[in-house]
Write a protein that binds this DNA or RNA. Sequence first.
DNA 1: TATGAATGAGCCTTCATTCAT
DNA 2: TATGAATGAAGGCTCATTCAT
Lengths: 205, 205, 205, 205
Amino acid sequence: MMTKRISLKETQRKERERLILDYAEKALLEKGYYDMNMDEIAMGVGVAKGTLYLHFPKKEDLVYTLVEPKMQSFLKSVEEAKALPVSPKEKLEFLLNRELSGAFFQLLMKSSPDMTTIFKSREAEVNDILPKIFSGIHDMLSEGIREGLFDPELPVEFMSSAFINLFEPHLYKEMVEVRKMPLQVFNSHLSNLFFRGIMDTKETN
Amino acid sequence: MMTKRISLKETQRKERERLILDYAEKALLEKGYYDMNMDEIAMGVGVAKGTLYLHFPKKEDLVYTLVEPKMQSFLKSVEEAKALPVSPKEKLEFLLNRELSGAFFQLLMKSSPDMTTIFKSREAEVNDILPKIFSGIHDMLSEGIREGLFDPELPVEFMSSAFINLFEPHLYKEMVEVRKMPLQVFNSHLSNLFFRGIMDTKETN
Amino acid sequence: MMTKRISLKETQRKERERLILDYAEKALLEKGYYDMNMDEIAMGVGVAKGTLYLHFPKKEDLVYTLVEPKMQSFLKSVEEAKALPVSPKEKLEFLLNRELSGAFFQLLMKSSPDMTTIFKSREAEVNDILPKIFSGIHDMLSEGIREGLFDPELPVEFMSSAFINLFEPHLYKEMVEVRKMPLQVFNSHLSNLFFRGIMDTKETN
Amino acid sequence: MMTKRISLKETQRKERERLILDYAEKALLEKGYYDMNMDEIAMGVGVAKGTLYLHFPKKEDLVYTLVEPKMQSFLKSVEEAKALPVSPKEKLEFLLNRELSGAFFQLLMKSSPDMTTIFKSREAEVNDILPKIFSGIHDMLSEGIREGLFDPELPVEFMSSAFINLFEPHLYKEMVEVRKMPLQVFNSHLSNLFFRGIMDTKETN
DNA sequence: TATGAATGAGCCTTCATTCAT
DNA sequence: TATGAATGAAGGCTCATTCAT
């Protein structure tokens, strides 16, 4: 019974935290880090300002809490992709499929000047995650080159940066959310575009 | 004589405005909209803070004045490209070559949440320029499809968004500024990647 | 039986109140009124914050409850001293001995600007106790003057303020707590210093 | 003329700063560090809150700027006293005369728990001044003992702490400000009290 | 009765903008 | 016209106090 009550409270706490994070994510995406303010979030969620600070000691922490699991999930997908017993192209396609609609968000973040502030305050943690993501992708591309699938004249860094760019949310938003292109179709277009782009075509010539 | 003096003053005024805009551009790129502040810009340019407000009534106006000519120049390039008596592919390559190193900047801006604020305050003007840019690109791509060059299965909007993404500054920065890849090489990789990606390859199969 | 249970509860209540007061006293002395906060006290005592408010409706009340018995005890000592069948000098020495190491604390309080806030909220009570303390000391000093022991040229108010100053905790802290001077020695130095200072020495000349 | 204008502005600036410091000193003495707030000071001085921050970057700095010159002036008096070609007793009397009515204030500060905060933020500077004050007084007292004037049985630290206590503002306030005892008379009572207290009286016995 | 999550007033500080000189 | 001191609205954060459980 004691346990039940505790877990009830804990549940409510998590729920509240979820509400805050959801609202904050929306605000962050719409307004950016600086234009979203703690008052407005409190209002939006329907709690007092102080309550936010029970969950997140700083504004930075709230935002980082938002971003961190997305980076983690992305990293996890990268690692799963790498471990698949398929061709590098299929691995990367798996990754695109898995992450395009969801967690790509963090990469938007990385490009925003706002995010620099946040990431600076968590440098150690960020430096633990992001490089792993990049090197995972790098590995898959290198593998593809070694196997003669991808164009050896394109530097791997070029490919990986271009690949990362695919997760940039504007294209996704425009095509899937605005123009209602089915996600499947969007994914296949995107991977076609990219893989035809990096394919080693010399044998064809 | 009167005219001369005025035009002298006017010249000085323009010069100063140039200095302010140059410094502000650097600051904006390095720190983003919120972390660049008017004090710092005044200091950096070597004028008093009040002087900034003689040139730009709001911080927003300063930044918009920064972005606007870049959009205009981009639009001009689009129109020049369209008018060239060459294939659509070559038109788009011309555009890439012309704008990659310079004015793509504005598109970074557009993606940043900060910029939303700025653009909102100038909605009318922005809505006059941006759609023309997109439709210009759209036109060249459609032309390419009609001529059987580009894959008709890829929606034009998809192609154009992907094309716009090429100007996203991260890839450029990483490859050209950090890794010192020559701009020529970078351009050719980029256009290879893109055009192989959108090429109509059915005949090849 | 009813009474017994109540008194048991009452005992526990008092015990807890004691714990709170003890912890708060330490915190108050170390950090002052504003840097000691209710969270920290609750934590330190091992009760919930709300519990503090069952005992003391305001932070001010907690602190006043701390100070008040010390003033009372000091007053009691003054009255005992007055009633002793010995010389005024010995009465005052008794008072020094009795109170130096303990309750002088409240007087530190009085000098701190923080305490002003506290005392203002309890003006009536404070005005009932402090004047009695001062007049008790005043009486002993007057008696000593009348008996030709103390210098009649020194105003009594001067003597009494100087005497009160002896309880100022800095000297005590420095000598007894930091330099480990035995309390006996400290007391005798202090009373020597004071009484030689106020002694009527004309007859010696 | 240029110079004149500059010095005029500078004069006004100093005047304003003086007003702020004066008001802040009153507030600090009346309410203590925490109960005095920047809003109230701005209001009281008749400037906007932001203006305070043109003069003092932090609340702490404002208060420290208040306290620092008083410590410096006290130190200067100590050094002047030491250099006088008179007896140690007369040196210390000179110091009492000079500082009693004015700058002793800082020592009140030192005892207040609030001040701890301020001093912590300026540890280096404070540690440069305060020890010099104490050692200067210490030297004069030691000199007096060596010359057989002061009681060699009283530890010098005891004497010096007691001497410092004389500057404690309560006695002064009560006698001079409340009871209107002339400063001269107050000083002579005080030094009588103290010096009779520490005098070496063995030869008399 | 005891708890501790929730509250919100209040404080310090920043910075775009104004305006007297 | 150019200046830069002055302004004050707005934001992040703290903490005494309340109240549902």
